[in-house]
Simulated scan of single mutants.
Amino acid sequence: MKRLNILVLAITIFFGTSLEAYSMGKKFSEQGGRLSIALNHLLVSKGFCKSPSECFDLLPGYTDHDDMVRINYYCVGDKNFVAFLEVINFVLKSGVATTGNVQISIKAYRETHDQVRESGLFVKGIKPFMSMEVTK
Rank of each mutant, 00 (worst) to 15 (best):
M1E: 13
K2I: 13
R3N: 10
L4D: 11
L9R: 11
A10T: 12
I11C: 13
F15T: 08
G16Y: 02
E20H: 02
E20L: 08
A21I: 05
Y22L: 13
Y22W: 09
S23Y: 14
M24I: 08
K26A: 06
S29Q: 04
S29F: 01
E30D: 04
G33D: 02
L35A: 04
S36N: 03
S36D: 02
I37W: 01
I37P: 00
I37H: 01
L39I: 08
L43G: 02
V44A: 01
F48A: 01
F48G: 01
P52C: 00
L58E: 02
G61A: 04
Y62W: 04
T63D: 04
V69E: 03
R70N: 08
I71V: 09
I71G: 05
I71R: 07
K79N: 12
F84G: 07
E86S: 13
I88E: 08
K93A: 14
V96L: 10
A97Q: 14
T99Y: 10
T99W: 10
G100F: 08
G100M: 10
N101E: 13
A108I: 10
A108H: 09
Y109A: 14
R117D: 12
E118N: 13
E118I: 05
G120V: 12
K124D: 06
S131E: 15
M132R: 08
V134N: 05
K136P: 14
